[in-house]
């Protein structure tokens, strides 16, 4: 199977803080991976590197066999030009914890904006695509609503539709359900689960909600201290974790 995401001995530091430490990571095309781990372990940074929002200090990152980052000793061997980053970003879509919808646009406008202004579709084509995606996430009756008039769960569904509108091959979810009221998690999870059924879509979710990992992933990685300490099927990681750190983390999560 071909790799969709490859991290090859990647180091990432913020000042003195080591966030990724000789980090190796592979995700096959169509795989659904959940990353769990304590706060500050570098999960968001990992996703931001894949989304080309953050660079690396050392190592290589490739998407679909194409090099995204290649650095040695803090020097970029691939120039991170705007063009290169924009090209690579066409493979990836990202959903953020705080939705980050555009408050000046309606739900329809949020989803149609990139097809219209990035892909250059006509207004009618862009809106048709947006309406279809919003229907898929169950928001056909909210097309003209501004984000401020939507619940958190509805906003996050708009955000998922918005990311899907550019037809990415990789979807990243960074704590997509963590900012929601508990009774709103289900509706977003439902949409994520539907995406997880798309064979060719590669998905990486970062979450501290074990239920989310269980619902989406066919593989779970436990991350701490800038490395993946344990990597296995949901059944193995959640029910019979081998690493002591994984066990401690799962105990803490279950208690909270």
């Amino acid at each position: 199977m071909s790799d969709m995401i490859t991290f090859d001995k990647v180091d990432k530091r913020f000042g003195q803080t080591v966030v990724l430490d000789q980090f190796d990571f592979r995700v096959a095309r169509g795989e659904k991976v959940a990353i769990i781990g304590p706060s500050g372990s570098g999960k968001s940074t990992l996703l931001r590197i894949i989304m080309a929002l953050q660079d690396i200090d050392q190592g290589k990152v490739s998407l679909d066999g194409r090099p995204l980052w290649d650095a040695a000793g803090g020097k970029h061997r691939i120039k991170p030009t705007r063009k290169h980053l924009r090209d690579m970003r066409s493979l990836v879509g990202m959903v953020f914890q705080n939705f980050n919808l555009f408050p000046n646009l309606t739900a329809l406008g949020n989803v149609a904006a990139a097809p219209r202004h990035v892909l250059g579709l006509s207004q009618a084509e862009a809106e048709a695509r947006a309406a279809a995606l919003l229907a898929q996430v169950g928001l056909s009756d909210k097309l003209q609503n501004y984000p401020a008039t939507l619940s958190g769960g509805q906003q996050q569904r708009v955000a998922i539709a918005r990311a899907m509108a550019l037809e990415p091959e990789i979807m990243l979810f960074d704590e997509a359900t963590s900012a929601l009221d508990p009774e709103r998690v289900g509706e977003v999870l439902e949409v994520m689960r539907a995406l997880a059924h798309e064979r060719d879509l590669t998905i990486v979710v970062v979450t501290h909600q074990i239920g989310v990992a269980r619902a989406i992933a066919d593989r779970i990685c436990f991350m701490e201290g800038g490395r993946i300490l344990e990597d296995g099927t949901p059944q193995q990681i959640l029910n019979e974790p081998r690493n002591e750190r994984t066990r401690a983390f799962l105990r803490a999560v279950h208690l909270s």
């Binding site: 931001r48 989304m51 080309a52 929002l53 980053l85 924009r86 970003r89 066409s90 990836v92 879509g93 990202m94 953020f96 705080n98 980050n100 919808l101 555009f102 904006a113 990139a114 202004h117 990035v118 918005r162 990311a163 550019l166």
Partner: peptide, 13 residues
């Protein structure tokens, strides 16, 4: 900042 994250990830010029 989140607005810029969304803008960059959606590849707007």
């Amino acid at each position: 900042r989140g607005q810029w994250d969304a803008i960059e990830s959606l590849r707007f010029s």
